[in-house]
Design a protein around this nucleic acid. Structure first.
Lengths: 109, 109
DNA sequence: TTAAATAGATACCAAAAGGTATCATGTCAA
DNA sequence: TTGACATGATACCTTTTGGTATCTATTTAA
Protein backbone atom coordinates (compact mmCIF):
# COMPACT_ATOMS: atom_id res chain seq x y z
CA UNK A 1 0.00 0.00 0.00
CA UNK A 2 1.00 3.61 0.21
CA UNK A 3 2.88 4.35 -2.98
CA UNK A 4 1.31 2.17 -5.63
CA UNK A 5 2.70 3.81 -8.70
CA UNK A 6 0.33 1.96 -10.99
CA UNK A 7 -2.75 3.42 -9.30
CA UNK A 8 -1.30 6.89 -9.64
CA UNK A 9 -0.47 6.55 -13.31
CA UNK A 10 -3.87 5.03 -13.90
CA UNK A 11 -5.53 7.96 -12.17
CA UNK A 12 -3.68 10.42 -14.38
CA UNK A 13 -4.54 8.64 -17.61
CA UNK A 14 -8.04 10.10 -17.92
CA UNK A 15 -8.70 13.68 -19.11
CA UNK A 16 -11.70 14.14 -16.81
CA UNK A 17 -9.62 13.17 -13.82
CA UNK A 18 -6.84 15.54 -14.82
CA UNK A 19 -9.42 18.31 -15.09
CA UNK A 20 -10.74 17.44 -11.64
CA UNK A 21 -7.22 17.64 -10.24
CA UNK A 22 -6.84 21.10 -11.69
CA UNK A 23 -10.11 22.20 -10.14
CA UNK A 24 -9.24 20.74 -6.76
CA UNK A 25 -5.84 22.37 -6.82
CA UNK A 26 -7.66 25.70 -6.53
CA UNK A 27 -10.17 24.77 -3.84
CA UNK A 28 -11.66 21.86 -1.97
CA UNK A 29 -14.94 20.68 -3.44
CA UNK A 30 -17.80 18.32 -2.70
CA UNK A 31 -18.84 15.67 -5.19
CA UNK A 32 -21.81 17.76 -6.28
CA UNK A 33 -19.62 20.79 -6.84
CA UNK A 34 -17.21 18.83 -9.00
CA UNK A 35 -20.07 17.22 -10.89
CA UNK A 36 -21.49 20.66 -11.62
CA UNK A 37 -18.57 21.29 -13.93
CA UNK A 38 -19.12 18.23 -16.07
CA UNK A 39 -21.81 16.93 -18.35
CA UNK A 40 -22.04 13.61 -16.58
CA UNK A 41 -23.83 12.15 -13.61
CA UNK A 42 -22.74 12.54 -10.04
CA UNK A 43 -22.17 8.78 -9.86
CA UNK A 44 -19.70 8.94 -12.73
CA UNK A 45 -17.83 11.80 -11.07
CA UNK A 46 -17.80 9.83 -7.85
CA UNK A 47 -16.09 6.96 -9.65
CA UNK A 48 -13.42 9.31 -10.95
CA UNK A 49 -12.92 10.67 -7.45
CA UNK A 50 -12.54 7.12 -6.17
CA UNK A 51 -9.81 6.46 -8.72
CA UNK A 52 -8.06 9.69 -7.79
CA UNK A 53 -8.22 8.71 -4.15
CA UNK A 54 -6.80 5.27 -4.90
CA UNK A 55 -4.00 6.99 -6.76
CA UNK A 56 -3.46 9.11 -3.64
CA UNK A 57 -3.85 12.27 -5.66
CA UNK A 58 -6.70 13.51 -3.47
CA UNK A 59 -7.79 13.02 0.10
CA UNK A 60 -11.37 12.96 1.29
CA UNK A 61 -12.91 14.12 4.53
CA UNK A 62 -16.51 13.96 5.61
CA UNK A 63 -18.26 17.02 6.97
CA UNK A 64 -21.83 16.28 7.91
CA UNK A 65 -23.54 14.89 4.90
CA UNK A 66 -20.94 16.36 2.61
CA UNK A 67 -17.84 14.67 1.29
CA UNK A 68 -15.07 17.13 0.68
CA UNK A 69 -12.33 16.31 -1.79
CA UNK A 70 -8.90 17.86 -1.45
CA UNK A 71 -5.96 17.93 -3.81
CA UNK A 72 -3.04 15.90 -2.45
CA UNK A 73 0.10 16.91 -4.36
CA UNK A 74 2.30 14.46 -2.46
CA UNK A 75 0.59 11.75 -4.47
CA UNK A 76 2.71 12.76 -7.43
CA UNK A 77 5.82 11.54 -5.71
CA UNK A 78 5.84 8.02 -7.20
CA UNK A 79 5.48 9.57 -10.62
CA UNK A 80 8.48 11.80 -10.12
CA UNK A 81 10.41 8.91 -8.67
CA UNK A 82 9.70 6.86 -11.75
CA UNK A 83 10.69 9.72 -14.00
CA UNK A 84 13.92 9.78 -12.05
CA UNK A 85 14.98 6.52 -13.70
CA UNK A 86 15.60 8.58 -16.80
CA UNK A 87 17.86 11.03 -15.08
CA UNK A 88 20.51 10.54 -17.71
CA UNK A 89 18.27 12.00 -20.33
CA UNK A 90 17.56 15.29 -18.66
CA UNK A 91 20.68 15.69 -16.62
CA UNK A 92 20.08 15.36 -12.91
CA UNK A 93 18.00 18.46 -12.52
CA UNK A 94 15.03 16.26 -11.85
CA UNK A 95 16.36 15.64 -8.37
CA UNK A 96 15.72 19.27 -7.51
CA UNK A 97 12.10 18.75 -8.29
CA UNK A 98 11.98 15.52 -6.32
CA UNK A 99 13.44 17.32 -3.35
CA UNK A 100 10.79 19.98 -3.68
CA UNK A 101 8.07 17.36 -3.52
CA UNK A 102 9.62 15.59 -0.59
CA UNK A 103 9.96 18.83 1.33
CA UNK A 104 6.31 19.62 0.77
CA UNK A 105 5.51 16.20 2.15
CA UNK A 106 6.49 17.21 5.63
CA UNK A 107 3.45 19.45 6.01
CA UNK A 108 0.31 18.10 7.57
CA UNK A 109 -3.25 19.34 7.95
CA UNK B 1 -1.30 16.08 -33.65
CA UNK B 2 2.20 16.46 -32.32
CA UNK B 3 1.78 16.88 -28.61
CA UNK B 4 -1.38 15.00 -27.72
CA UNK B 5 -1.05 14.85 -23.99
CA UNK B 6 -3.76 12.24 -23.66
CA UNK B 7 -1.89 9.75 -25.82
CA UNK B 8 1.21 10.25 -23.73
CA UNK B 9 -0.56 9.77 -20.40
CA UNK B 10 -2.34 6.77 -21.82
CA UNK B 11 0.96 5.26 -22.92
CA UNK B 12 2.40 5.70 -19.42
CA UNK B 13 -0.57 4.12 -17.66
CA UNK B 14 0.48 0.53 -18.32
CA UNK B 15 3.24 -1.20 -16.33
CA UNK B 16 4.45 -3.23 -19.30
CA UNK B 17 4.88 -0.08 -21.33
CA UNK B 18 6.77 1.62 -18.52
CA UNK B 19 9.06 -1.40 -18.35
CA UNK B 20 9.60 -1.22 -22.08
CA UNK B 21 10.52 2.45 -21.78
CA UNK B 22 13.12 1.58 -19.18
CA UNK B 23 14.58 -1.07 -21.41
CA UNK B 24 14.69 1.19 -24.42
CA UNK B 25 16.30 3.96 -22.43
CA UNK B 26 19.37 1.73 -22.22
CA UNK B 27 19.51 0.58 -25.82
CA UNK B 28 17.53 0.46 -29.04
CA UNK B 29 15.73 -2.82 -29.52
CA UNK B 30 13.74 -4.70 -32.14
CA UNK B 31 10.27 -5.99 -31.42
CA UNK B 32 11.59 -9.50 -30.96
CA UNK B 33 14.23 -8.32 -28.51
CA UNK B 34 11.66 -6.49 -26.43
CA UNK B 35 9.27 -9.43 -26.58
CA UNK B 36 12.04 -11.69 -25.31
CA UNK B 37 11.82 -9.97 -21.96
CA UNK B 38 8.12 -10.59 -21.45
CA UNK B 39 5.87 -13.57 -21.08
CA UNK B 40 3.54 -12.50 -23.83
CA UNK B 41 3.31 -12.80 -27.57
CA UNK B 42 5.18 -10.63 -30.01
CA UNK B 43 1.87 -9.27 -31.26
CA UNK B 44 0.97 -8.05 -27.79
CA UNK B 45 4.34 -6.35 -27.43
CA UNK B 46 3.87 -4.79 -30.82
CA UNK B 47 0.60 -3.26 -29.64
CA UNK B 48 2.34 -1.77 -26.63
CA UNK B 49 5.03 -0.36 -28.89
CA UNK B 50 2.33 1.16 -31.09
CA UNK B 51 0.82 2.89 -28.08
CA UNK B 52 4.22 4.15 -27.00
CA UNK B 53 4.81 5.48 -30.49
CA UNK B 54 1.42 7.21 -30.51
CA UNK B 55 2.36 8.79 -27.22
CA UNK B 56 5.59 9.93 -28.85
CA UNK B 57 7.62 8.22 -26.18
CA UNK B 58 9.52 6.13 -28.72
CA UNK B 59 10.48 6.51 -32.35
CA UNK B 60 10.76 3.67 -34.83
CA UNK B 61 13.07 3.17 -37.76
CA UNK B 62 13.22 0.28 -40.16
CA UNK B 63 16.48 -1.44 -40.94
CA UNK B 64 16.06 -4.22 -43.44
CA UNK B 65 13.48 -6.57 -42.09
CA UNK B 66 13.98 -5.28 -38.59
CA UNK B 67 12.03 -2.58 -36.85
CA UNK B 68 14.15 -0.76 -34.33
CA UNK B 69 12.52 1.02 -31.43
CA UNK B 70 14.23 3.97 -29.77
CA UNK B 71 13.46 5.81 -26.58
CA UNK B 72 12.29 9.36 -27.28
CA UNK B 73 12.57 11.38 -24.04
CA UNK B 74 11.22 14.55 -25.65
CA UNK B 75 7.86 12.83 -25.61
CA UNK B 76 7.66 13.51 -21.89
CA UNK B 77 7.39 17.20 -22.52
CA UNK B 78 3.57 17.43 -22.50
CA UNK B 79 3.57 15.56 -19.21
CA UNK B 80 5.95 18.02 -17.63
CA UNK B 81 3.98 20.88 -19.09
CA UNK B 82 0.83 19.54 -17.51
CA UNK B 83 2.57 19.07 -14.19
CA UNK B 84 3.56 22.69 -14.51
CA UNK B 85 -0.03 23.71 -13.83
CA UNK B 86 0.60 22.78 -10.24
CA UNK B 87 3.66 24.95 -9.88
CA UNK B 88 2.23 26.56 -6.79
CA UNK B 89 2.43 23.30 -4.93
CA UNK B 90 6.09 22.58 -5.45
CA UNK B 91 7.35 26.10 -5.79
CA UNK B 92 8.53 26.87 -9.27
CA UNK B 93 11.43 24.49 -9.35
CA UNK B 94 9.60 22.47 -11.94
CA UNK B 95 10.57 25.03 -14.53
CA UNK B 96 14.19 23.97 -14.19
CA UNK B 97 13.21 20.50 -15.22
CA UNK B 98 11.13 21.77 -18.11
CA UNK B 99 14.09 23.77 -19.33
CA UNK B 100 16.23 20.67 -19.15
CA UNK B 101 13.82 18.80 -21.37
CA UNK B 102 13.55 21.61 -23.85
CA UNK B 103 17.31 21.94 -24.05
CA UNK B 104 17.70 18.24 -24.73
CA UNK B 105 15.19 18.63 -27.53
CA UNK B 106 17.71 20.48 -29.65
CA UNK B 107 19.92 17.42 -30.05
CA UNK B 108 19.60 15.22 -33.08
CA UNK B 109 21.01 11.88 -34.11
C1' DT C 1 -41.05 14.94 12.63
C1' DT C 2 -40.76 15.21 8.07
C1' DA C 3 -39.20 16.63 3.59
C1' DA C 4 -35.41 17.80 0.81
C1' DA C 5 -30.53 17.45 -0.07
C1' DT C 6 -26.10 14.96 -0.20
C1' DA C 7 -24.00 10.94 -0.70
C1' DG C 8 -23.30 5.55 -1.03
C1' DA C 9 -24.17 1.08 -3.40
C1' DT C 10 -25.64 -1.86 -7.10
C1' DA C 11 -26.82 -3.49 -11.35
C1' DC C 12 -26.27 -2.88 -15.90
C1' DC C 13 -24.34 -1.43 -20.56
C1' DA C 14 -21.19 -0.12 -24.42
C1' DA C 15 -16.68 0.74 -25.67
C1' DA C 16 -11.82 0.37 -25.03
C1' DA C 17 -7.79 -2.28 -23.53
C1' DG C 18 -4.80 -6.19 -23.21
C1' DG C 19 -4.07 -10.43 -24.96
C1' DT C 20 -3.89 -14.72 -28.35
C1' DA C 21 -4.03 -17.11 -32.74
C1' DT C 22 -3.54 -17.06 -37.49
C1' DC C 23 -2.26 -15.70 -41.95
C1' DA C 24 0.13 -12.61 -45.21
C1' DT C 25 4.32 -9.95 -46.51
C1' DG C 26 8.98 -8.59 -47.04
C1' DT C 27 13.92 -9.76 -46.35
C1' DC C 28 18.18 -12.24 -45.54
C1' DA C 29 21.14 -16.00 -46.67
C1' DA C 30 22.50 -20.39 -48.54
C1' DT D 1 15.30 -19.65 -55.89
C1' DT D 2 13.93 -21.08 -51.86
C1' DG D 3 13.47 -21.55 -47.03
C1' DA D 4 13.77 -19.43 -42.63
C1' DC D 5 13.11 -15.25 -40.09
C1' DA D 6 11.23 -10.70 -38.59
C1' DT D 7 7.44 -8.24 -39.01
C1' DG D 8 2.50 -6.60 -40.41
C1' DA D 9 -2.40 -7.23 -40.25
C1' DT D 10 -6.76 -9.32 -38.83
C1' DA D 11 -10.04 -11.49 -36.32
C1' DC D 12 -11.43 -12.80 -32.03
C1' DC D 13 -11.83 -13.16 -26.88
C1' DT D 14 -11.98 -11.52 -22.02
C1' DT D 15 -11.51 -7.97 -18.67
C1' DT D 16 -11.49 -3.26 -17.48
C1' DT D 17 -13.24 1.23 -17.92
C1' DG D 18 -16.39 5.06 -18.22
C1' DG D 19 -20.93 5.88 -17.98
C1' DT D 20 -26.20 5.64 -16.64
C1' DA D 21 -30.18 4.41 -13.83
C1' DT D 22 -32.04 3.21 -9.62
C1' DC D 23 -32.50 2.43 -4.88
C1' DT D 24 -30.99 3.17 -0.06
C1' DA D 25 -29.01 5.70 3.84
C1' DT D 26 -27.86 9.78 6.30
C1' DT D 27 -28.17 14.58 7.49
C1' DT D 28 -29.92 19.11 7.51
C1' DA D 29 -33.45 22.41 8.20
C1' DA D 30 -38.17 24.00 8.46
Amino acid sequence: MGTDIQETFRALADPTRRDILNMLSHEDMTIAQVAGHFDMTRAAVKKHLNVLEQGQLITVRTSGRERINRFHPEGFKPVFDWLGYFDGFWDDRLSALKNAIETKDTSDD
